[in-house]
Design a protein around this nucleic acid. Structure first.
Lengths: 187, 187
DNA sequence: TAACGATTTTGACTTTTGTCAAAAGATCAT
DNA sequence: ATGATCTTTTGACAAAAGTCAAAATCGTTA
């Protein structure tokens, strides 16, 4: 979830609330190829990426890695289904580059909801952003060809283009590896 | 958003809160082919379908109708982007069959958040359900062929199969009309 | 019921995308 | 630097999906 234009400032937290919030988030570093979360684990942390890049993926029935999200700087990491439903994750979340996060535990985050009323609104707004992103993603799949989806990806995430394997992008936009290679050659 | 297994009961609203909630939702009937919402309007109501069937759709750049959701009985109707962001809707929501809803206005719903703490949790849970549905939908597009997406649709929404035009289903699963017809013939 | 309009199917064809395997290019650890 | 490994490209082909137009079906209404 990209939060470049989002800011906690607009919620007018009191100094006390802000201190409580910031104190709840602790730094964590993850080296390239290490995991933020493994399949089967319950997602117990929300992470905010301050540096680096991670991705989430699962394995389909033919054991292909299917990338579901990229998490560059200024994004929130969370395995939504797992975190929300306290259920084992179907996804892995793995660092592509050495990364630095701020993380908060599930329990602590629940306490923030109790202690700081504005957090309910923050949560609602973050959910809205996420839903907007997903609606857009679905629309792309419904109406665009593979080549068009790739073009959209390039426009939307130009920074990622240089930083991730093409294979990750291919599965993210739902095309075969070889097909993406040919799409790229054509233009 | 299908709420067949969801119930407001589990939130232990007080008698007072329940009365307030139920009193906020008023009945509304929509005849087949009439609109719950038109493109450009701001979605000012949430609706709960008690009878009938509606669908949401937009027009792509070639002026094709692209169906984005079906709303049979026991589902919540809402144009998420419009309702949440108070922005003009890009979608139409139109009744396929004569339908009966319970609706609540945006303002009233906001009051419920204020007046009844549990509504924050309800909202969060409904959002989670919606997000789960959308993750699933995206996964289908990423990993399944057109034929497989159709099979999934049939399994997931058997009731709809008899009630909606095939063209609506075709655009919902992202295939051409003629292609869907051929997929159906094959098996 | 006849007739109109909308929906669905079908045919003939083209384009897009996938598959499999091999070659070419990068990258990384030693 | 140099294998070893991983990623990307390419070729030859097959399968899937789209396009366009016409026919067949279905529903509705005059």
């Amino acid at each position: 979830m990209n939060l470049t234009k989002w800011s906690i400032d607009k919620y007018n937290l009191t100094e006390e609330e802000m201190k409580l919030t910031l104190g709840s988030y602790v730094p964590k570093t993850i080296k390239a190829n290490d995991f933020f979360l493994k399949e089967g684990e319950i997602c117990n942390y929300i992470g905010y990426v301050t540096k680096g890049l991670l991705r989430s993926y699962f394995y389909d029935d033919q054991a292909n890695e299917i990338t579901t999200s990229f998490f560059p700087e200024s994004t929130l990491i969370i395995a939504l289904d797992s975190f929300n439903n306290r259920a084992p994750s179907k996804e892995f979340i793995k660092a592509i580059e050495d990364s630095e996060l701020s993380v908060v535990s599930y329990l602590r985050q629940m306490e923030l909801y109790q202690l700081i009323p504005a957090w309910n609104q923050i949560c609602k707004d973050l959910g809205d952003i996420k839903i907007g992103e997903m609606l857009n993603r679905t629309e792309n799949f419904q109406t665009l060809t593979a080549a068009e989806r790739y073009q959209r990806f390039c426009k939307e995430y130009p920074q990622l283009l240089q930083r991730v394997n093409l294979g990750y992008i291919a599965s993210y936009i739902g095309v075969d590896n070889a097909t993406l290679s040919r799409i790229r050659k054509k233009k």
